[in-house]
Amino acid sequence: MVENRRFLNVLTHLVLIIGVLVVAFPVYVAFIASTHEAGAFVRGVIPLTPGDHFWATYSQMLGSGWQVAGAPPVWLMLANSTIMALAIAFGKITISILSAFAIVYFRFRFRLLAFWIIFITLMLPVEVRIIPTYAVVANLGMLNSYAGLTLPLIASATATFLFRQFFMTVPEELMEASRVDGAGPMKFFKDILLPVSITNIAALFVIMFIYGWVQYLWPLLVTTQEDFYTIVLGIKRLMASSDRVPAWNLIMATVTLAMVPPVMVVLLMQKLFVKGLTETEK
């Protein structure tokens, strides 16, 4: 800073500490709730200090689940979420890097048309076309399947744009040199373009993984069998039954477990995450 003002510096840290605490507070309360036994919530307020049922709660949820509520074990829902998030991230990156390669490095008929068809998907988030998309997936017999969960979310103009922008900045000489050396387009793609894109791929992967993990409306529509519940969906199912049996500790343990994987991804790959976020949205 330009000048040093003691008061302002103290105030700055104070604001930041309060901000960090307020942001973290709901998660803290949820975690604390998950370490108590169900009886702790019958009277009075939510406890604010840890209880001693951490292992009991988490081993029950991860193991057998909560049978009364009709939800599968949490490990199964975590596995489903992981499969869904990975499939969406892999799928989006694969199809968009291929189409961006075609659009940037080839000259062919209908190139502009293809570009516009992809571009239009930017304007059609799944939320605005819920019912007809559901009808398509149902007609294809893809309800209650991983394909039905992931395929409609895979097409993404954002990723294609990102790769297109990036490919435009790749030096022309790389492609010309590889051509002089007699390499065909796919060899150039595999041996030169993919390796130079690796940071962008990784950054996009982080963002798309989170995007896939937090999906809710779509899984809600296409999965009716418990075997395909994702963890985010499972929480809602647990909540729905909580009017009868308010097992807050179990619900909050599931909530905590649902947050751990994507939050860990953000924290461990913060640099890639920030890069991915700021570049995909611009």
Binding site: G19, V20, V23, A24, F25, P26, V27, V29, A30, A33, I46, I210, W213, V214, Q215, Y216, V232, I235, K236, M239, W248, I251, M252, V255, A258, M259, P262, V263, V265, V266, L267, Q270, F273, V274, L277
Partner: peptide
């Protein structure tokens, strides 16, 4: 920054449940 960015990864449903609980 690290302590402030992580809620991005929290699903909207989960955010709802957390505040609903509070």
């Amino acid at each position: 920054t690290t302590l402030l960015v992580w809620p991005y990864a929290v699903a909207p449903v989960v955010a709802g449940v957390l505040w609903w609980f509070l």
